[in-house]
Design a binder for these strands. Structure first.
Lengths: 223, 223
DNA sequence: AACTGGATAAGTGGATACACAGATACGCTT
DNA sequence: AAGCGTATCTGTGTATCCACTTATCCAGTT
Protein backbone atom coordinates (compact mmCIF):
# COMPACT_ATOMS: atom_id res chain seq x y z
CA UNK A 1 0.00 0.00 0.00
CA UNK A 2 1.14 3.52 -0.68
CA UNK A 3 -0.16 4.59 2.69
CA UNK A 4 2.20 2.15 4.34
CA UNK A 5 5.17 3.88 2.82
CA UNK A 6 4.05 7.20 4.21
CA UNK A 7 3.16 5.95 7.68
CA UNK A 8 5.33 2.93 8.34
CA UNK A 9 4.24 1.90 11.81
CA UNK A 10 0.84 2.14 13.43
CA UNK A 11 -2.42 3.42 12.06
CA UNK A 12 -2.67 7.11 12.62
CA UNK A 13 -6.29 8.01 13.05
CA UNK A 14 -7.11 11.68 12.95
CA UNK A 15 -8.05 11.66 16.61
CA UNK A 16 -4.68 10.12 17.52
CA UNK A 17 -2.92 12.79 15.54
CA UNK A 18 -4.86 15.58 17.20
CA UNK A 19 -4.14 14.09 20.60
CA UNK A 20 -0.42 13.82 19.97
CA UNK A 21 -0.26 17.30 18.49
CA UNK A 22 -1.93 18.99 21.43
CA UNK A 23 -0.13 16.89 24.03
CA UNK A 24 3.24 17.77 22.55
CA UNK A 25 2.35 21.45 22.60
CA UNK A 26 1.26 21.20 26.23
CA UNK A 27 4.38 19.28 27.27
CA UNK A 28 6.61 21.82 25.61
CA UNK A 29 4.83 24.53 27.51
CA UNK A 30 3.65 26.25 24.36
CA UNK A 31 0.41 27.22 26.02
CA UNK A 32 0.05 28.78 29.42
CA UNK A 33 -2.36 27.65 32.09
CA UNK A 34 -5.81 29.07 31.53
CA UNK A 35 -5.34 29.52 27.79
CA UNK A 36 -8.33 28.50 25.77
CA UNK A 37 -7.96 25.75 23.23
CA UNK A 38 -10.25 26.53 20.32
CA UNK A 39 -11.26 23.39 18.40
CA UNK A 40 -11.75 25.32 15.18
CA UNK A 41 -8.25 26.76 15.37
CA UNK A 42 -6.48 23.50 16.12
CA UNK A 43 -8.53 21.62 13.56
CA UNK A 44 -7.44 23.88 10.73
CA UNK A 45 -3.90 23.84 12.11
CA UNK A 46 -3.61 20.09 11.65
CA UNK A 47 -5.96 19.98 8.70
CA UNK A 48 -9.02 18.16 10.00
CA UNK A 49 -12.50 18.89 11.25
CA UNK A 50 -13.46 19.78 14.81
CA UNK A 51 -14.74 16.39 15.91
CA UNK A 52 -11.46 14.49 16.29
CA UNK A 53 -10.10 17.52 18.11
CA UNK A 54 -13.04 17.47 20.51
CA UNK A 55 -12.43 13.82 21.19
CA UNK A 56 -8.76 14.51 21.78
CA UNK A 57 -9.83 17.12 24.33
CA UNK A 58 -11.77 14.45 26.24
CA UNK A 59 -8.73 12.26 26.40
CA UNK A 60 -6.49 15.09 27.52
CA UNK A 61 -9.05 16.07 30.13
CA UNK A 62 -9.04 12.54 31.49
CA UNK A 63 -5.28 12.85 31.93
CA UNK A 64 -5.66 16.16 33.68
CA UNK A 65 -3.86 18.21 31.05
CA UNK A 66 -6.88 20.32 30.17
CA UNK A 67 -10.20 21.16 31.77
CA UNK A 68 -13.47 21.07 29.89
CA UNK A 69 -16.17 23.27 31.34
CA UNK A 70 -19.64 22.77 29.88
CA UNK A 71 -20.43 25.37 27.23
CA UNK A 72 -17.27 27.24 28.08
CA UNK A 73 -14.78 25.26 26.12
CA UNK A 74 -11.44 23.70 26.87
CA UNK A 75 -8.72 25.45 28.84
CA UNK A 76 -5.19 24.42 29.69
CA UNK A 77 -5.07 23.02 33.20
CA UNK A 78 -2.73 24.72 35.56
CA UNK A 79 -1.47 23.11 38.71
CA UNK A 80 -1.60 25.07 41.91
CA UNK A 81 1.29 24.70 44.31
CA UNK A 82 -0.73 22.20 46.31
CA UNK A 83 -1.51 20.20 43.22
CA UNK A 84 2.16 20.03 42.26
CA UNK A 85 2.95 18.65 45.70
CA UNK A 86 0.05 16.23 45.42
CA UNK A 87 1.25 14.97 42.07
CA UNK A 88 4.69 14.31 43.47
CA UNK A 89 3.20 12.53 46.46
CA UNK A 90 1.22 10.24 44.17
CA UNK A 91 4.24 9.69 41.96
CA UNK A 92 6.34 8.81 44.98
CA UNK A 93 4.14 5.92 46.12
CA UNK A 94 3.47 4.65 42.60
CA UNK A 95 7.11 4.67 41.56
CA UNK A 96 8.03 3.28 44.96
CA UNK A 97 5.69 0.38 44.33
CA UNK A 98 7.08 -0.04 40.83
CA UNK A 99 10.67 -0.24 41.98
CA UNK A 100 9.77 -2.72 44.70
CA UNK A 101 8.04 -4.96 42.19
CA UNK A 102 10.86 -4.46 39.71
CA UNK A 103 13.49 -5.81 42.03
CA UNK A 104 13.12 -9.51 41.15
CA UNK A 105 13.50 -8.72 37.45
CA UNK A 106 16.73 -6.81 37.74
CA UNK A 107 19.93 -8.34 36.40
CA UNK A 108 23.37 -7.18 35.36
CA UNK A 109 22.34 -5.89 31.97
CA UNK A 110 19.89 -3.54 33.60
CA UNK A 111 22.61 -1.68 35.44
CA UNK A 112 24.63 -1.22 32.28
CA UNK A 113 21.58 0.20 30.55
CA UNK A 114 20.76 2.49 33.48
CA UNK A 115 24.31 3.80 33.57
CA UNK A 116 24.07 4.55 29.88
CA UNK A 117 20.81 6.38 30.56
CA UNK A 118 22.53 8.47 33.22
CA UNK A 119 25.29 9.38 30.77
CA UNK A 120 22.72 10.40 28.20
CA UNK A 121 20.96 12.47 30.85
CA UNK A 122 24.16 14.29 31.70
CA UNK A 123 25.01 14.95 28.09
CA UNK A 124 21.47 16.16 27.47
CA UNK A 125 21.72 18.54 30.40
CA UNK A 126 24.29 20.50 28.44
CA UNK A 127 22.10 20.63 25.35
CA UNK A 128 19.05 22.16 26.95
CA UNK A 129 16.13 21.73 29.24
CA UNK A 130 14.00 19.80 26.77
CA UNK A 131 16.44 16.99 26.31
CA UNK A 132 17.24 16.62 29.97
CA UNK A 133 13.59 16.38 30.99
CA UNK A 134 12.96 13.73 28.38
CA UNK A 135 15.99 11.71 29.46
CA UNK A 136 15.09 12.06 33.10
CA UNK A 137 11.63 10.69 32.44
CA UNK A 138 13.09 7.87 30.40
CA UNK A 139 15.38 6.92 33.27
CA UNK A 140 12.53 6.71 35.76
CA UNK A 141 10.25 4.87 33.36
CA UNK A 142 13.01 2.42 32.52
CA UNK A 143 13.09 1.32 36.14
CA UNK A 144 9.31 1.29 36.50
CA UNK A 145 8.87 -0.82 33.41
CA UNK A 146 10.89 -3.60 35.01
CA UNK A 147 7.98 -4.09 37.41
CA UNK A 148 6.10 -5.65 34.52
CA UNK A 149 2.91 -3.81 35.51
CA UNK A 150 1.48 -2.10 32.41
CA UNK A 151 -1.28 -0.18 34.15
CA UNK A 152 1.05 1.06 36.84
CA UNK A 153 3.61 2.24 34.30
CA UNK A 154 0.90 3.94 32.32
CA UNK A 155 -0.31 5.92 35.32
CA UNK A 156 3.22 6.95 36.21
CA UNK A 157 3.94 8.05 32.66
CA UNK A 158 0.74 10.07 32.69
CA UNK A 159 1.86 11.90 35.83
CA UNK A 160 5.22 12.65 34.23
CA UNK A 161 3.46 14.37 31.37
CA UNK A 162 1.41 16.51 33.73
CA UNK A 163 4.43 17.91 35.54
CA UNK A 164 6.66 18.13 32.49
CA UNK A 165 6.15 21.84 31.78
CA UNK A 166 6.94 22.65 35.40
CA UNK A 167 10.09 20.55 35.26
CA UNK A 168 11.20 22.46 32.19
CA UNK A 169 10.78 25.80 33.86
CA UNK A 170 12.57 24.57 36.92
CA UNK A 171 15.48 23.35 34.84
CA UNK A 172 15.70 26.58 32.89
CA UNK A 173 15.93 28.58 36.08
CA UNK A 174 18.33 26.57 38.18
CA UNK A 175 20.26 24.22 35.91
CA UNK A 176 20.82 21.66 38.58
CA UNK A 177 21.65 18.37 36.87
CA UNK A 178 24.91 18.09 38.81
CA UNK A 179 23.34 16.98 42.07
CA UNK A 180 20.70 15.11 40.09
CA UNK A 181 23.36 12.73 38.83
CA UNK A 182 24.43 11.90 42.36
CA UNK A 183 20.86 11.33 43.47
CA UNK A 184 20.17 8.94 40.67
CA UNK A 185 23.42 7.10 41.33
CA UNK A 186 22.08 6.42 44.81
CA UNK A 187 18.97 4.93 43.24
CA UNK A 188 21.06 2.55 41.18
CA UNK A 189 23.09 1.71 44.25
CA UNK A 190 20.05 0.60 46.22
CA UNK A 191 18.89 -1.45 43.26
CA UNK A 192 22.24 -3.23 43.41
CA UNK A 193 21.71 -4.01 47.08
CA UNK A 194 18.71 -6.14 46.17
CA UNK A 195 16.66 -4.88 49.11
CA UNK A 196 13.21 -4.25 47.64
CA UNK A 197 11.79 -2.58 50.73
CA UNK A 198 14.74 -0.22 50.99
CA UNK A 199 14.56 0.57 47.29
CA UNK A 200 10.93 1.55 47.66
CA UNK A 201 11.74 3.95 50.48
CA UNK A 202 14.69 5.49 48.63
CA UNK A 203 12.59 6.04 45.53
CA UNK A 204 9.78 7.63 47.51
CA UNK A 205 12.14 9.98 49.28
CA UNK A 206 13.92 10.84 46.06
CA UNK A 207 10.69 11.96 44.47
CA UNK A 208 9.06 13.88 47.29
CA UNK A 209 12.30 15.69 48.01
CA UNK A 210 12.42 17.26 44.57
CA UNK A 211 8.87 18.59 44.85
CA UNK A 212 9.57 21.58 47.12
CA UNK A 213 12.54 22.61 44.98
CA UNK A 214 10.37 22.65 41.94
CA UNK A 215 7.41 24.27 43.63
CA UNK A 216 9.52 27.15 44.88
CA UNK A 217 9.50 28.53 41.38
CA UNK A 218 6.60 30.29 39.80
CA UNK A 219 4.33 27.84 38.09
CA UNK A 220 3.33 28.68 34.50
CA UNK A 221 0.17 30.49 35.51
CA UNK A 222 -2.47 29.47 37.99
CA UNK A 223 -6.02 28.32 37.56
CA UNK B 1 -36.01 29.18 35.26
CA UNK B 2 -38.16 26.16 34.67
CA UNK B 3 -35.10 24.11 33.84
CA UNK B 4 -33.82 24.66 37.35
CA UNK B 5 -36.84 22.95 38.76
CA UNK B 6 -36.27 19.89 36.63
CA UNK B 7 -32.54 19.65 37.17
CA UNK B 8 -31.80 21.29 40.47
CA UNK B 9 -28.03 20.95 40.65
CA UNK B 10 -25.47 20.80 37.88
CA UNK B 11 -25.92 21.14 34.17
CA UNK B 12 -26.51 17.78 32.60
CA UNK B 13 -25.10 17.75 29.12
CA UNK B 14 -26.05 14.86 26.89
CA UNK B 15 -22.51 13.55 26.99
CA UNK B 16 -22.57 13.54 30.79
CA UNK B 17 -25.80 11.62 30.74
CA UNK B 18 -24.46 9.04 28.30
CA UNK B 19 -21.34 8.67 30.42
CA UNK B 20 -23.30 8.11 33.63
CA UNK B 21 -25.68 5.72 31.94
CA UNK B 22 -22.97 3.49 30.54
CA UNK B 23 -20.81 3.67 33.63
CA UNK B 24 -23.71 2.59 35.82
CA UNK B 25 -24.41 -0.35 33.53
CA UNK B 26 -20.76 -1.37 33.62
CA UNK B 27 -20.54 -1.06 37.40
CA UNK B 28 -23.62 -3.17 37.83
CA UNK B 29 -22.06 -5.80 35.65
CA UNK B 30 -24.84 -5.58 33.09
CA UNK B 31 -22.37 -6.18 30.30
CA UNK B 32 -19.73 -8.86 30.22
CA UNK B 33 -16.12 -8.33 29.29
CA UNK B 34 -15.65 -8.34 25.55
CA UNK B 35 -19.22 -7.28 24.80
CA UNK B 36 -19.46 -4.71 22.09
CA UNK B 37 -21.00 -1.37 22.91
CA UNK B 38 -22.90 -0.17 19.88
CA UNK B 39 -23.24 3.63 19.81
CA UNK B 40 -26.45 3.48 17.78
CA UNK B 41 -28.07 1.18 20.33
CA UNK B 42 -27.12 3.17 23.39
CA UNK B 43 -27.99 6.45 21.70
CA UNK B 44 -31.57 5.39 21.04
CA UNK B 45 -31.73 3.85 24.49
CA UNK B 46 -31.11 7.20 26.16
CA UNK B 47 -32.75 9.22 23.44
CA UNK B 48 -29.90 11.10 21.83
CA UNK B 49 -27.68 10.92 18.79
CA UNK B 50 -24.53 8.86 18.50
CA UNK B 51 -22.11 11.71 18.95
CA UNK B 52 -22.31 12.25 22.71
CA UNK B 53 -22.17 8.48 23.13
CA UNK B 54 -18.94 8.35 21.19
CA UNK B 55 -17.44 11.00 23.41
CA UNK B 56 -18.62 9.13 26.48
CA UNK B 57 -16.75 6.10 25.14
CA UNK B 58 -13.55 8.11 25.03
CA UNK B 59 -13.94 9.09 28.64
CA UNK B 60 -14.72 5.55 29.73
CA UNK B 61 -11.72 4.32 27.77
CA UNK B 62 -9.49 6.78 29.60
CA UNK B 63 -10.69 5.28 32.87
CA UNK B 64 -10.03 1.78 31.62
CA UNK B 65 -13.64 0.62 31.66
CA UNK B 66 -13.82 0.04 27.93
CA UNK B 67 -11.34 -0.44 25.13
CA UNK B 68 -11.61 1.35 21.81
CA UNK B 69 -9.82 -0.43 19.00
CA UNK B 70 -9.39 1.61 15.84
CA UNK B 71 -12.11 0.84 13.32
CA UNK B 72 -13.33 -2.02 15.45
CA UNK B 73 -15.50 -0.21 17.91
CA UNK B 74 -15.81 -0.17 21.65
CA UNK B 75 -15.76 -3.27 23.82
CA UNK B 76 -16.12 -3.74 27.54
CA UNK B 77 -12.70 -4.06 29.15
CA UNK B 78 -12.10 -7.24 31.07
CA UNK B 79 -9.41 -7.55 33.65
CA UNK B 80 -7.15 -10.56 33.54
CA UNK B 81 -6.17 -12.12 36.83
CA UNK B 82 -2.86 -10.27 36.68
CA UNK B 83 -4.61 -7.01 36.06
CA UNK B 84 -6.90 -7.52 39.04
CA UNK B 85 -3.86 -8.05 41.23
CA UNK B 86 -2.20 -5.03 39.71
CA UNK B 87 -5.21 -2.86 40.39
CA UNK B 88 -5.23 -3.91 44.02
CA UNK B 89 -1.51 -3.24 44.28
CA UNK B 90 -2.00 0.26 42.97
CA UNK B 91 -4.99 0.81 45.23
CA UNK B 92 -2.98 -0.35 48.22
CA UNK B 93 -0.25 2.25 47.87
CA UNK B 94 -2.62 5.06 46.91
CA UNK B 95 -5.03 4.42 49.77
CA UNK B 96 -2.06 3.86 52.05
CA UNK B 97 -0.79 7.30 51.11
CA UNK B 98 -4.27 8.76 51.57
CA UNK B 99 -4.70 7.39 55.06
CA UNK B 100 -1.23 8.58 56.06
CA UNK B 101 -2.03 12.09 54.88
CA UNK B 102 -5.49 11.90 56.44
CA UNK B 103 -4.16 11.28 59.92
CA UNK B 104 -3.67 14.92 60.96
CA UNK B 105 -7.26 15.74 59.97
CA UNK B 106 -8.90 13.03 62.01
CA UNK B 107 -10.93 13.98 65.05
CA UNK B 108 -13.59 12.44 67.25
CA UNK B 109 -16.49 13.10 64.90
CA UNK B 110 -14.74 11.11 62.21
CA UNK B 111 -14.83 7.94 64.26
CA UNK B 112 -18.52 8.31 64.94
CA UNK B 113 -19.17 8.74 61.25
CA UNK B 114 -16.98 5.77 60.32
CA UNK B 115 -18.74 3.55 62.85
CA UNK B 116 -22.06 4.58 61.34
CA UNK B 117 -20.66 3.68 57.93
CA UNK B 118 -19.67 0.25 59.22
CA UNK B 119 -23.18 -0.29 60.54
CA UNK B 120 -24.65 0.71 57.21
CA UNK B 121 -22.25 -1.69 55.51
CA UNK B 122 -23.35 -4.54 57.70
CA UNK B 123 -27.02 -3.80 57.20
CA UNK B 124 -26.45 -3.54 53.46
CA UNK B 125 -24.73 -6.90 53.42
CA UNK B 126 -28.05 -8.48 54.27
CA UNK B 127 -29.85 -6.63 51.52
CA UNK B 128 -27.67 -7.75 48.66
CA UNK B 129 -24.35 -7.49 46.92
CA UNK B 130 -25.06 -4.14 45.28
CA UNK B 131 -25.65 -2.26 48.48
CA UNK B 132 -22.70 -3.78 50.30
CA UNK B 133 -20.25 -2.94 47.52
CA UNK B 134 -21.48 0.64 47.43
CA UNK B 135 -21.19 1.00 51.19
CA UNK B 136 -17.78 -0.58 51.21
CA UNK B 137 -16.52 1.89 48.65
CA UNK B 138 -18.08 4.73 50.59
CA UNK B 139 -16.25 3.64 53.73
CA UNK B 140 -12.89 3.57 52.02
CA UNK B 141 -13.46 6.86 50.21
CA UNK B 142 -14.61 8.49 53.43
CA UNK B 143 -11.19 7.86 54.94
CA UNK B 144 -9.33 8.83 51.79
CA UNK B 145 -11.17 12.12 51.50
CA UNK B 146 -9.80 13.20 54.84
CA UNK B 147 -6.41 13.42 53.19
CA UNK B 148 -7.66 16.58 51.48
CA UNK B 149 -6.02 15.51 48.20
CA UNK B 150 -8.61 15.80 45.41
CA UNK B 151 -6.54 14.22 42.65
CA UNK B 152 -5.55 11.32 44.83
CA UNK B 153 -9.14 10.64 45.86
CA UNK B 154 -10.22 10.85 42.26
CA UNK B 155 -7.73 8.22 41.17
CA UNK B 156 -8.72 5.93 44.00
CA UNK B 157 -12.40 6.30 43.19
CA UNK B 158 -11.65 5.51 39.58
CA UNK B 159 -9.94 2.26 40.59
CA UNK B 160 -12.92 1.34 42.74
CA UNK B 161 -15.18 1.63 39.73
CA UNK B 162 -12.94 -0.63 37.66
CA UNK B 163 -13.00 -3.48 40.16
CA UNK B 164 -16.62 -3.01 41.20
CA UNK B 165 -18.11 -5.73 38.97
CA UNK B 166 -15.57 -8.20 40.26
CA UNK B 167 -16.35 -7.28 43.85
CA UNK B 168 -20.03 -7.92 43.17
CA UNK B 169 -19.39 -11.37 41.80
CA UNK B 170 -17.12 -12.14 44.70
CA UNK B 171 -19.75 -11.06 47.18
CA UNK B 172 -22.47 -13.04 45.44
CA UNK B 173 -20.40 -16.20 45.61
CA UNK B 174 -18.96 -16.09 49.10
CA UNK B 175 -21.06 -13.69 51.15
CA UNK B 176 -18.26 -12.81 53.47
CA UNK B 177 -19.11 -9.50 55.13
CA UNK B 178 -18.70 -11.08 58.57
CA UNK B 179 -14.90 -11.10 58.58
CA UNK B 180 -14.97 -7.87 56.58
CA UNK B 181 -16.45 -6.07 59.56
CA UNK B 182 -13.61 -7.22 61.78
CA UNK B 183 -11.01 -6.15 59.24
CA UNK B 184 -12.42 -2.68 58.94
CA UNK B 185 -12.66 -2.36 62.70
CA UNK B 186 -8.91 -2.89 62.77
CA UNK B 187 -8.54 -0.02 60.33
CA UNK B 188 -10.48 2.29 62.60
CA UNK B 189 -8.41 1.10 65.53
CA UNK B 190 -5.15 2.07 63.91
CA UNK B 191 -6.61 5.44 63.02
CA UNK B 192 -7.35 5.91 66.71
CA UNK B 193 -3.72 5.14 67.55
CA UNK B 194 -2.64 8.24 65.64
CA UNK B 195 0.37 6.52 64.10
CA UNK B 196 0.34 7.62 60.46
CA UNK B 197 3.08 5.27 59.33
CA UNK B 198 1.40 2.28 60.92
CA UNK B 199 -1.96 3.25 59.45
CA UNK B 200 -0.41 3.33 56.00
CA UNK B 201 0.96 -0.17 56.41
CA UNK B 202 -2.31 -1.54 57.79
CA UNK B 203 -4.29 -0.06 54.92
CA UNK B 204 -1.87 -1.44 52.36
CA UNK B 205 -2.00 -4.90 53.84
CA UNK B 206 -5.77 -4.76 54.16
CA UNK B 207 -6.15 -4.09 50.47
CA UNK B 208 -3.61 -6.45 48.98
CA UNK B 209 -4.86 -9.27 51.18
CA UNK B 210 -8.34 -9.16 49.70
CA UNK B 211 -7.01 -9.38 46.15
CA UNK B 212 -6.23 -13.12 46.08
CA UNK B 213 -9.60 -13.93 47.62
CA UNK B 214 -11.34 -12.01 44.92
CA UNK B 215 -9.15 -13.27 42.12
CA UNK B 216 -9.78 -16.90 43.07
CA UNK B 217 -13.19 -16.58 41.48
CA UNK B 218 -13.81 -16.52 37.80
CA UNK B 219 -13.68 -13.00 36.49
CA UNK B 220 -16.62 -11.92 34.34
CA UNK B 221 -14.98 -12.93 31.08
CA UNK B 222 -11.47 -12.32 29.88
CA UNK B 223 -10.03 -10.10 27.20
C1' DA C 1 -18.91 57.79 37.72
C1' DA C 2 -20.16 53.21 38.85
C1' DC C 3 -23.41 49.71 38.57
C1' DT C 4 -27.08 47.23 36.49
C1' DG C 5 -29.68 45.67 32.65
C1' DG C 6 -30.61 44.02 28.16
C1' DA C 7 -29.20 43.38 23.33
C1' DT C 8 -25.95 41.24 20.52
C1' DA C 9 -22.16 38.39 19.16
C1' DA C 10 -19.48 34.29 19.61
C1' DG C 11 -18.68 29.68 20.57
C1' DT C 12 -19.95 25.16 22.34
C1' DG C 13 -22.88 21.10 22.20
C1' DG C 14 -25.71 18.33 19.61
C1' DA C 15 -28.23 16.42 15.32
C1' DT C 16 -28.23 14.87 10.72
C1' DA C 17 -26.51 13.41 6.35
C1' DC C 18 -22.88 11.70 3.74
C1' DA C 19 -18.25 9.84 2.17
C1' DC C 20 -14.63 6.73 3.05
C1' DA C 21 -11.83 2.98 4.95
C1' DG C 22 -11.10 -1.03 7.53
C1' DA C 23 -13.01 -5.47 9.26
C1' DT C 24 -15.82 -9.30 9.15
C1' DA C 25 -18.38 -12.67 6.78
C1' DC C 26 -19.89 -14.97 3.05
C1' DG C 27 -19.66 -17.29 -1.29
C1' DC C 28 -17.17 -18.48 -5.13
C1' DT C 29 -13.48 -20.75 -7.59
C1' DT C 30 -9.95 -24.14 -7.96
C1' DA D 1 -11.69 -28.29 1.61
C1' DA D 2 -8.78 -24.41 1.35
C1' DG D 3 -7.77 -20.06 -0.43
C1' DC D 4 -9.23 -15.93 -2.34
C1' DG D 5 -12.16 -12.20 -3.74
C1' DT D 6 -16.20 -9.61 -2.96
C1' DA D 7 -20.06 -7.70 -0.36
C1' DT D 8 -21.71 -5.72 3.55
C1' DC D 9 -21.41 -3.63 7.85
C1' DT D 10 -19.58 -0.56 11.03
C1' DG D 11 -16.60 2.84 12.69
C1' DT D 12 -14.28 7.20 11.55
C1' DG D 13 -14.18 11.78 9.59
C1' DT D 14 -16.41 15.79 7.15
C1' DA D 15 -19.78 19.22 6.41
C1' DT D 16 -23.69 21.76 7.69
C1' DC D 17 -27.24 23.34 10.53
C1' DC D 18 -29.53 24.60 14.82
C1' DA D 19 -30.23 25.51 19.75
C1' DC D 20 -28.60 27.18 23.73
C1' DT D 21 -25.22 29.06 26.93
C1' DT D 22 -21.80 32.31 27.79
C1' DA D 23 -19.41 36.52 27.08
C1' DT D 24 -19.14 41.30 25.64
C1' DC D 25 -20.56 45.77 25.10
C1' DC D 26 -23.30 49.62 25.27
C1' DA D 27 -26.90 52.36 27.14
C1' DG D 28 -29.72 53.73 30.83
C1' DT D 29 -30.27 54.51 35.68
C1' DT D 30 -29.08 55.84 40.29
Amino acid sequence: MAADAIEPLGITTAEEEAYRHIQRALRMGRYRAGDRLIPEEIATEIGMSRMPVREAFRQLAAEGLVVIRPNRGCIVAGLTLDEIYETFEIRSVLEGLAVRLAMPHIDVEVFEELERQLDRMERASQTGSSDWVVRHQAFHLQICQLSNRPKLVRQIASLHVVIEPYLRIWFDYVDKPASARAEHEILIEVLRSGDAGKAEIVMRDHIVETAPLLASFASPGRR
